[in-house]
Nucleic acid binder design. Structure first.
Lengths: 201, 201
DNA sequence: AAATGCATGTAACGCGTTACATGATTTT
DNA sequence: AAAATCATGTAACGCGTTACATGCATTT
């Protein structure tokens, strides 16, 4: 029964991200972009160039359908909702093991090539990463407060908190690593004479 | 003087990864693949389809040059070495802020859509991530021992340890998060009656 | 003699971002 | 009236993996 899917591809994650978003509520492509950024923006992203064609394709295969033009506002908005068939497809995808693409961390690559680099620049990169994740950490704490108070009854809350806690754990790890690494870099940059001078003080 | 580079592109990270590897020692494309996997494999990867064309391009622009056929072994091997011009280019790239591509974590995406999923499957995904990172952690400890003993005099050692420690920090974060998350998932899966039964025991 | 491993390369494909094009509506 | 925002969509491009093709050398 219609298995001519040809190429299994890597995972079609974008497709299921879009499909999944419609389990939260019916949405237009434009709105979805904003909702993605606000909800899963810390670990996922989709661009318009991805969202619009995906919505078209999903509608074609009957996984979603366009809601009759509510015309609540006069602007043209194509609002989609997930169908039962879409829910089934999503359910299957959620059960399949998550695809883990090969990791790539440009910061670490630059650190690794340290001997060929200007150490003060490497230090800057690490410091920037530190500040960035420290800011994230503060943001996450704030988000957790808001989530707990404003989404107390949402069935998704426990899961949203799990993803948030992942972000917290990861940010903490980077912050700690950066601090340790900055110390090491400083001790390498300072010539022995400076260290001796510091001792004399 | 020849600035018709047209498109700046995102970063050309592969190009500089390849270039950087040649600061370790002269290598062939085939060997480089193996060295990449062994040294920076935890946070970087390059495929042959990327390495060979990149080597050709780098040679064309004078950043690397082919070593005269050592003919030490009879097999055809194209061994490349970095040139001064290549070192300069690499130095500039290392000084530029690392490009951070939008994060994508499929595991978290599946967790986020938990209410639309089979919870036992989500639990499996988290458990798999846990086991995977726990194994990594053990591996990293082993690698650190080997590095410290076998590369004690390498000028790159402190930097290699930094990248390794990043891996450790990250793996620890995932392990801790998974453990917490598994507990939460279990408490959600067990119906109240089961929890009550457990209490009676 | 066959199988495995070394070694290089190309072509196709997937998928994602960026940039561009278009136009309506609301705000300043 | 101009600027900003809402809203949809397409085309081009970059870049990375996978698969394929080829052939020699070594091991079994």
């Amino acid at each position: 029964m219609a298995d001519s899917e040809s190429k299994p591809s890597r995972a079609q994650a974008s497709k299921f991200a879009v499909l999944g978003m419609l389990t939260l509520k019916p949405m237009s492509g434009y709105e979805m972009r904003a909702v993605i950024q606000q909800s899963i923006g810390n670990f996922w992203s989709e661009s318009f160039g991805q969202i619009y064609p995906t919505l078209k394709a999903l509608e074609k295969e009957g996984a979603i359908r366009q809601l009759p033009g509510g015309t609540r506002s006069k602007r043209e908005r194509n609002v989609y909702d997930i169908t039962q068939r879409g829910r089934d497809e999503l359910h299957r995808w959620l059960a399949s093991p998550p695809y883990a693409p090969p990791k790539r961390n440009e910061l670490l690559l630059k650190v690794f090539f340290g001997p060929a680099a200007d150490l003060t620049k490497i230090r800057e990169h690490v410091q920037t990463a530190h500040d960035h994740e420290a800011a994230n950490l503060a943001r996450y704490k704030q988000i957790e407060k808001e989530l707990r108070s404003q989404c107390a009854n949402e069935p998704g809350l426990p899961f949203w908190l799990m993803t948030l806690h992942f972000g917290v754990a990861q940010a903490q790890a980077v912050v700690r690593w950066s601090e340790e690494t900055l110390k090491t870099l400083d001790s390498m940059t300072q010539p022995k004479s400076a260290r001796a001078a510091a001792k004399r003080k």
